[in-house]
């Protein structure tokens, strides 16, 4: 099995940025991932939804990039929601306590619904 490379697709609708993350995030590309997010996010964004449906793997280096992004969004008052994590990713987010810091939803539509909560 060949490792899938990291990829990020974003689109913006009504000041909500949806970011679909695919492949794997490890120590070799976490800094690049953080940089890709930084350049995609605008200060005027009302919310950022990060969709992990296609994300196969994340290590602590990737979690670090998620935390840095979450902190910067929190500072600028932008809502941050993660969605569609696999069982394995759910486990990593729970073990690290990230599920208590970041809003996580089962699907993209639930993530969108949560913006009105």
């Amino acid at each position: 099995m060949e490792s899938e490379t990291l990829n990020l697709q974003t689109k913006r609708e009504d000041d909500v940025l949806s970011a679909r993350v695919g492949g794997r995030i490890d120590g070799s590309n976490a800094a690049r991932f953080e940089e890709m997010l930084r350049s995609a996010i605008e200060e005027s964004d009302r919310a950022v939804i990060m969709d992990f449906e296609q994300l196969l793997y994340i290590s602590s280096a990737g979690l670090r990039a998620v935390l840095i992004t979450a902190k910067s969004l929190w500072k600028q008052g932008t809502t941050f929601v993660l969605c569609s994590l696999s069982d394995q990713l759910t486990g990593v987010f729970a073990s690290s306590g990230f599920d208590r810091m970041v809003k996580i939803r089962g699907s993209r539509s639930e993530a969108l619904d949560s913006l009105d909560e």
Binding site: S59, S60, A61, L63, R64, L67, I68, A70, K71, W74, S95, S96, G97, R100, M101, V102
Partner: peptide
């Protein structure tokens, strides 16, 4: 500290 808030949680130390 896995119970820290987003504001207080230090970056790193997870590996």
């Amino acid at each position: 500290d896995t119970n820290a808030s987003i504001e207080d949680r230090p970056i790193g130390g997870l590996g």
